[in-house]
């Protein structure tokens, strides 16, 4: 009998896992809470480091899907129960399936930048998040701030909601540094006369071509990198944002006025998914993400046989890392069901 696998979450990880599992000969059902598949990638204009289009990327992944895959959208999974050697997965709308294995590709949620009140998101109009900026890029409209002016200066704040125990997130979200570099370049491409600043604690350019992109940002776009974490921002009469940091490399407090401040919001494990992992009895470690059985040897396995993880539900990842993780999860499932 053809084994059945339920994949939960149709972002890049879920789509890619499903495609691979289906190609391996399994019956696959892909459940997604939203109306459409694609996850966060739908809202992301361009991907680092190549500036590949988010929309095209997701289209390419969807193209790879076998028509045999059943895609169940607009269904929020509310229950997973292990019964003997199979799982019963049920949704809020009465949808239910039996599965021989379950793959969690539930992803992350973007840190809610309102929680860093001192940065002014939701208070000052010209403080936006990296996600807001992607939306603005995707809209294709002229790049202006909330006063309809082209900002003369744009600031990027790294590590918003990441590496910050004041919001209970000690972990690094991994992708924000390179995203900031990417977005800084994009801003510069749109407004070549603007001055762009990145406020960072450490620049973590860990991936292939990331350092090159950083160098390009310096060399070609004259983006300034200031090593100092924002303490607070205020607004002047004209809606400019006044940023307070210490230029730690010079050892002096620095004040700078920018027309637009972009907060690089980090990744968090979504509380809604926590209900699912609790139901299964999976371990969420201190950073909130799901702990794999073994971080080196069995990164797609969990403590529960038959339950697999892929993508950002087991920690922040770039899209390319997510894709690789999804494919490796498919192999792990195949081995388990062999």
């Amino acid at each position: 009998m053809q084994k059945h696998i339920v994949v939960i979450g149709a972002g890049p990880a879920g789509l890619e896992s499903s495609a691979n599992l289906s190609n391996l000969g399994f019956r696959v059902t892909l459940v997604e809470k939203e109306e459409v598949t694609g996850g966060h990638l739908n809202k992301w204009h361009a991907l680092f480091p190549s500036l590949a289009s988010g929309k095209h990327t997701i289209e390419a992944i969807v193209k790879g899907l076998n028509p045999g895959i059943k895609i169940q959208t607009a269904t929020k999974v509310t229950g997973i129960e292990a019964v003997n050697d199979y799982f019963t997965v049920s949704g809020h709308n009465g949808w239910q399936e039996k599965a021989d294995a379950v793959v969690l590709t539930t992803g992350f949620q973007l840190f809610d930048s309102h929680r860093k009140e001192e940065y002014g998101y939701g208070i000052y109009e010209n403080v936006i998040t990296s996600a807001d900026l992607e939306k603005q890029f995707a809209s294709g409209k002229e790049f202006v701030n909330r006063q309809g002016k082209k900002p003369e200066r744009v600031g990027f704040v790294h590590c918003v909601g990441s590496r910050d125990e004041k919001v209970n997130n000690l972990h690094c979200s991994k992708v924000c540094c390179i995203t900031a570099v990417k977005q800084a370049i994009e801003v510069k491409q749109m407004i070549p006369e603007a001055d762009v600043f990145c406020f960072y604690m450490d620049l973590r350019m860990f991936g292939r071509h990331y350092e090159e992109l950083y160098k390009q940002a310096q060399e070609k776009y004259n983006i300034q990198f200031i090593r100092g974490r924002l303490s607070e921002s205020t607004e002047d009469k004209d809606g400019n944002i006044i940023v307070k940091v210490e230029d730690t490399l010079l050892g002096k407090p620095l004040r700078i006025k920018v027309g637009l401040l972009v907060l690089m919001a980090g990744m968090e494990f979504p509380p809604a998914t926590k209900a699912l992992t609790n139901m299964l009895g999976l371990k969420n470690v201190s950073d909130g993400f799901i702990q794999p059985l073994d971080e080196v040897l069995h990164s797609n396995l969990t403590e529960i046989p038959g339950v697999f993880i892929a993508g950002t539900c087991s920690g922040p990842k770039s899209v390319s890392d997510t894709m690789a993780d999804a494919r490796s999860a498919a192999l792990a499932v195949a081995e388990y069901l062999k």
Partner: peptide
């Protein structure tokens, strides 16, 4: 401490004098 400088950026005293807790 990871020397991020947030303390010295917000510091009340450092507005008036050279003072950095980070340092």
């Amino acid at each position: 401490c990871i020397s991020c400088g947030t303390c010295s950026a917000t510091c009340t005293a450092s507005q008036f004098t050279e003072f950095s807790l980070r340092q």
